[in-house]
Amino acid sequence: MQYSQKVLDHFMHPHNVGKMDNPDATATEGSPSCGDQVTVYLKVNHDSKVIEDVSFLSYGCASNIATASIITDLAKGKSLDEAKAITWRDAMEALDGLPPVKVHCSVLAADTLQTAISNYEIAHGLKEVPNFSKDTILEELKKIIYPQVGEDIVSLKMVKYVGFTDGEVLIDLNMMSFDSWRQNVAEEIHEHLEKYPEVKKIQINFP
């Protein structure tokens, strides 16, 4: 497994690193038990809605630090609407790629940025707190990377069924019993969905 020179550069000399004093919005995603956690801080111009400053803190591996560094570079100076269009694929591309098992780091970085923006918008009355629905689950599943190939499980057509009734999430996954990534993917799904208070129970079925 090799990192690109860009990843190494951003890992050794990350941009926009450090805690921000008096940020306009912040978000923390990931969990130490999964080995990675990112916090993003935003300073937003209230009139122009431009991200004037952005910084991050990262507990995690080299690619976790590098993806947080690049995502803050990509967001700096952008309007909120422009920044909302930044995805993990943009981060990957800007870093000249990542090893497949590390793609989930770019998802975490992009996710944290998006949550920070969303927190800003909610706090400033720019949007309502979104209702939790089956679509929310589907959006979250698009952020789960199958580590073998570095693509998300929805694009890979591994998600066969998603249901949500009375706080119970039901997901059918097309992953064979000999697939050594089953546990990783299941843990990731739990991590992504358990943060919603609407989710009381998660049932994942394999063939």
Binding site: M1, C34, G35, P147
Partner: peptide, 21 residues
């Protein structure tokens, strides 16, 4: 560290002796 392993798993010996992730 799990991040340094190809299987993205924390070391099983450390976990078995009660260390946290």
């Amino acid at each position: 560290s799990a991040c340094a392993s190809q299987g993205l798993k924390a070391n099983y010996v450390l976990m078995a002796i009660g260390k946290t992730h």
